[in-house]
Nucleic acid binder design. Sequence first.
DNA 1: GAAGATTGAAAAGTCAATCTTA
DNA 2: TAAGATTGACTTTTCAATCTTC
Lengths: 149, 149
Amino acid sequence: MYNTYVNYVSRTPQAGFFALVHSAGAVQEFVESRLAAIDLSLPKLAALHRLMESGGSMPLGQLAERLACVKSNVTQLVDRLEADGLVDRAPDPNDRRSRLAVITPKGKRAFEDGGRIQQTAEQELFGGLTGDEAQQLATLLEKVQARAK
Amino acid sequence: MYNTYVNYVSRTPQAGFFALVHSAGAVQEFVESRLAAIDLSLPKLAALHRLMESGGSMPLGQLAERLACVKSNVTQLVDRLEADGLVDRAPDPNDRRSRLAVITPKGKRAFEDGGRIQQTAEQELFGGLTGDEAQQLATLLEKVQARAK
DNA sequence: GAAGATTGAAAAGTCAATCTTA
DNA sequence: TAAGATTGACTTTTCAATCTTC
């Protein structure tokens, strides 16, 4: 992984920050490691997901919006996806400035396999919570997140 | 930021994954943005913290252990800290293979300022939870995290 | 040979600057 | 000039290979 922050464990006085950041890192790492078996990562799967939602293709700028990231990131993500043979770039017939990211047949298969893997992994992680617990967790996270803005 | 994952919102069927990863990203982003005011980041503050715990200096390998990351990461983190004037490299008198990271006076001031900023930010984020809620959150996160291994 | 550190290559993200087209 | 995409420089992380010293 390249994501989880170094252990900055200001465990005091608010233990919550450490617990939250590290739990998230652990579950992310868990899902990523499953996805690695088919050479996918969460960002790549996310991009394929967005493309599938839109019938298989989308301008790069729109993809950046849907992924809530900056355009230059999508340029590079699509470069890697293209190198993997999961996506192609095509001209946009409506606007010659724009380029479309188009999912390939191989990309569709990767999306389906990756989606299954991700769902299974999430089920393993969160399936142990009762409905009540899941609801509590969601509420508490929502409460904290609301203050982070 | 360079950390938070792209929005892979498999919101179904387990909403928990999305909520957890995004809350963590939001609180991290919140603290990082405060730290940016004094040109610090969480990883840099973490390293300074570890050095201060050990009286101001430590071999790089040991720093990597304390930060729970690989050694090459620390090599580069210390490079950046050195460029900022917060840390120096010094020879280890006990072992000529080893090098010490030594916090500078400027590094100590950055640690103190950064530590205060971080505590304030965490208080803002988690101070809204009652003791009960904080306990509940910790327990639920622990439960999920236990399955991610 | 094994341990400490570094270097090189890669993934994922940001920002600022640039190039092409509208 | 605006908008769409790319490029370049940087941060944070990992892994594999290398170099020096034990």
